[in-house]
Nucleic acid binder design. Sequence first.
DNA 1: ATGGGCACCTGGCTGC
DNA 2: TGCAGCCAGGTGCCCA
Length: 271
Amino acid sequence: MPELPEVETTCRGIAPAVCARRIKSVVVREHRLRWPLPKTFAAQLEGQRILDVGRRAKYLVLTLERGALIVHLGMSGSLRVLPAETPPQKHDHVDIVLNLGHCLRFNDPRRFGSMHFTADDPLEHALLRKLAPEPLGEAFHTEYLAKQTARRKVAIKLLLMNASLVVGVGNIYASEALFRAGVRPTRPARKVKRAELDKLVPAIKTVLSDAIRAGGTTLRDYVNADGAPGYFRQKLFVYERAGEPCRKCKTPIKQLTQGQRSTYYCPTCQV
DNA sequence: ATGGGCACCTGGCTGC
DNA sequence: TGCAGCCAGGTGCCCA
């Protein structure tokens, strides 16, 4: 999926077209998402005004007059703003039809994404309640990460991708942040020294911020609210660059598997 | 509590 | 041309 920068880009992209608009109707063409949409889904949204759009971790949260709509884009999902009469394409599973002729359309080939209506505070929803601090927030600092890594044997890359410790860092940006910090992804978390964590925390923050500025990373499916791809891919140092020369030292980038996911690193720059 | 592995899905690519 | 096998921005859940 979309990792944090792609979700943030989507959030900013849909906000102008969606905020203060009223939901005229909801069209569900495919209810079998990661969690099946209940029969009541459309009726719970219809007629409500959208007050605000925000992001928590990789979840988009649309605040409504009564309750909220929570959206996760999974691995291959996207949300686009389109003229309401645009004919649906393959995998266009849900339309949120708005007044003034716009439609917020959810497309997700792999259907790992999900949508949820909640009548209560969305941050208290079961999926959001236990999430760790935002990596771009003030609560994510060296002291915090040091506390989380202490006594943990898991590889540092897997720890960074654990949403109960820090949210929003997925497979691309975990590899990229570790490269920028000069830390091998396979190092047991507890062996990563304080001085290295001092580099890693800002590395995570800057790689995510830079990616947001570039509109995210498009590898395959991801498009923003206007249907355009993200341009951060050309700024990646290691991700999907196995065998290619390191952009700093020319050593061929290596690839390995951790937790059934591909990891990329430079064997010279990362110790 | 921690760690490891699987599951959910479709589509694109590779190699026989 | 066809088909099997493998891989892909995530993450909840089950088991040791």
